[in-house]
Computed example of a mutant assay.
Amino acid sequence: MQACPAFSTSTQVGDDHEARRTFTILATNFAGKSSVLFRQKTAVHEKASGKHVPAYDQYTTAALIQQGDHVIQVYIEKDAANLAKQLSAKAVARLCAAITC
């Protein structure tokens, strides 16, 4: 993950717009040694002019945490890194109580 802390991709939206998605790693090892927190930003641009249309911007924050054979996914449909970290810590505590980490 350190070799590629961010990447982008584009897809067509309708005939005259393009959605550019950028994924950025915000933190690793924050909820155990196998955890990653990342943000996805979707920005829409007009194809002809390349002009950014901010009204269509969307953010998603996600955390993936592995504990042994179990994986926890925290998914929030807004830019909320601190909230994702808090929910991840609670999820790990509950999982560990259930499986005896």
Rank of each mutant, 00 (worst) to 15 (best):
I72R: 01
T28P: 02
F23P: 01
E46K: 13
A91T: 06
S34V: 00
N29I: 00
L26R: 08
D79I: 05
L83T: 14
H70P: 05
I76K: 00
E77Y: 11
T28Y: 02
I65W: 03
D69L: 11
Q12M: 10
F23A: 08
I72E: 06
A19F: 00
A19D: 09
V71Y: 04
Y75A: 12
L37Y: 02
H70V: 11
T100H: 15
A43F: 04
L83F: 09
A93W: 02
H45F: 13
A27V: 02
L64T: 02
V92F: 03
P54D: 05
T60D: 11
T42K: 07
H52M: 09
A63E: 03
K90D: 15
V74A: 00
V71R: 13
A93Q: 12
A91H: 09
I76L: 13
L83K: 14
E18I: 10
A98C: 08
R39H: 08
I72S: 00
Q67V: 13
N29V: 02
T60Q: 12
F23R: 09
A91M: 09
I72T: 05
A6P: 03
N82M: 09
K33G: 10
D79G: 06
Q58A: 15
Q58R: 13
V36C: 04
N82K: 12
A3T: 15
D16P: 04
I65P: 00
A31M: 00
D16G: 11
V36H: 07
D16N: 14
A62N: 15
R20P: 05
Y59Q: 03
A63W: 02
G68K: 09
L83R: 13
R21L: 12
A81L: 03
Q66T: 12
P5H: 06
D69Q: 14
V74K: 04
M1Q: 10
M1D: 11
I76R: 02
C101G: 06
L37D: 00
F30M: 03
A63V: 05
I25N: 03
E18M: 10
V92I: 07
V53C: 10
R94V: 06
I25K: 04
V36W: 02
C101W: 06
V74E: 04
I76V: 12
A80G: 14
R39S: 05
V71M: 10
A27P: 06
T42V: 07
V92E: 08
Y56D: 14
F38S: 08
R20V: 11
A31P: 01
L37S: 07
A62R: 12
T28F: 01
A27D: 13
T24A: 08
T28S: 04
S8P: 06
S88V: 01
D79V: 03
C101I: 02
H45K: 09
Q58E: 14
Q40W: 00
G50Y: 07
R39Y: 03
A91F: 03
T24D: 08
A55C: 00
V71N: 07
L37G: 06
T60L: 13
Q86F: 04
A6Y: 11
N82T: 09
I72L: 08
A80N: 12
Q40V: 15
A97H: 12
H52I: 00
G14C: 08
A93N: 10
M1W: 09
F38G: 05
V71H: 04
K33Q: 14
A80P: 10
V44W: 04
L64F: 07
V13K: 12
V13M: 14
A3E: 14
T42R: 08
D15F: 14
Q73A: 14
F30N: 06
V74S: 07
H17V: 11
